[in-house]
Computed example of a mutant assay.
Amino acid sequence: MFIAINVVLSSIVVIPLGPIKAAPVQHLINVLCAVFVGPWFGLAQAVISSVLRLIFGTGSAFAFPGSVIGVLLASGFYYYRKHIFMAAVGEVIGTGIIGSLMCIPVAWIIGLDNFVVKPLMLAFIVSSVIGSVISYIILMILKRKGLLKKFLS
């Protein structure tokens, strides 16, 4: 279900910046996966969603490092602290900072020699903050209504 939501909504909500197609929905789904399904299913979701977005032309090769590192860090932060906010922080650090730096080798591999990291990092940070904030709000609403505990048990 997370993959389907991600692929469909990522084709609608995109922040284009040259060859990069940053999708806040990917980050929203990553945080939800960190809380609901953990790192391994979250990792599978990130890889499958990135592959499908690449096939459908709604994503780029830059989706892989950001989404994979983001979901793993979000899951790790969440399981370490058991706090929703930490999952959102992990996603922003994992995708926005570490994932954008990991895109440098990807850019070289696909032949972008004049690749500039600062605009990419800015786009990834903005995109991951937007998605993480929305997922945080969704999770807090579920928690306040007592539904989050039911989903997690």
Results as ranks from 00 to 15, higher is better:
residue 81 R to W: 02
residue 150 K to S: 08
residue 82 K to L: 10
residue 8 V to I: 15
residue 143 K to P: 10
residue 126 V to G: 08
residue 144 R to E: 14
residue 35 V to C: 10
residue 152 L to R: 09
residue 79 Y to F: 06
residue 57 G to N: 12
residue 88 A to Q: 03
residue 7 V to G: 03
residue 66 G to H: 03
residue 44 A to P: 00
residue 19 P to D: 09
residue 149 K to G: 13
residue 148 L to M: 12
residue 81 R to S: 13
residue 87 A to G: 07
residue 27 H to C: 08
residue 30 N to G: 08
residue 113 D to W: 02
residue 136 Y to K: 09
residue 24 P to H: 03
residue 132 S to A: 15
residue 141 I to G: 15
residue 89 V to G: 01
residue 143 K to M: 11
residue 94 G to Y: 02
residue 7 V to F: 10
residue 3 I to K: 02
residue 84 I to F: 13
residue 106 V to E: 02
residue 24 P to N: 04
residue 153 S to C: 11
residue 40 W to G: 05
residue 136 Y to S: 15
residue 99 G to Q: 00
residue 60 S to I: 08
residue 31 V to C: 10
residue 146 G to W: 03
residue 73 L to R: 01
residue 7 V to C: 12
residue 104 I to V: 02
residue 130 I to E: 03
residue 49 S to T: 11
residue 33 C to S: 14
residue 113 D to G: 11
residue 80 Y to S: 10
residue 49 S to I: 10
residue 110 I to W: 06
residue 62 F to C: 05
residue 31 V to D: 05
residue 30 N to L: 14
residue 68 V to N: 02
residue 74 A to C: 05
residue 37 V to H: 05
residue 6 N to L: 13
residue 23 A to P: 14
residue 106 V to Y: 01
residue 138 I to L: 15
residue 47 V to S: 05
residue 21 K to F: 14
residue 99 G to M: 00
residue 3 I to A: 08
residue 96 G to I: 00
residue 82 K to I: 04
residue 1 M to K: 13
residue 111 G to E: 09
residue 137 I to N: 13
residue 147 L to H: 13
residue 138 I to F: 14
residue 131 G to I: 09
residue 68 V to L: 07
residue 76 G to K: 07
residue 112 L to S: 00
residue 82 K to G: 07
residue 99 G to N: 00
residue 19 P to R: 01
residue 50 S to Q: 07
residue 4 A to L: 15
residue 68 V to F: 04
residue 137 I to Y: 11
residue 122 L to S: 04
residue 8 V to R: 01
residue 41 F to Q: 07
residue 23 A to D: 11
residue 80 Y to K: 14
residue 40 W to A: 12
residue 72 L to T: 01
residue 143 K to S: 15
residue 52 L to F: 12
residue 72 L to P: 00
residue 3 I to H: 02
residue 50 S to Y: 08
residue 11 S to L: 06
residue 56 F to Q: 10
residue 27 H to D: 07
residue 81 R to T: 10
residue 34 A to G: 09
residue 30 N to I: 11
residue 97 I to N: 01
residue 57 G to M: 09
residue 57 G to Y: 09
residue 96 G to D: 00
residue 115 F to H: 06
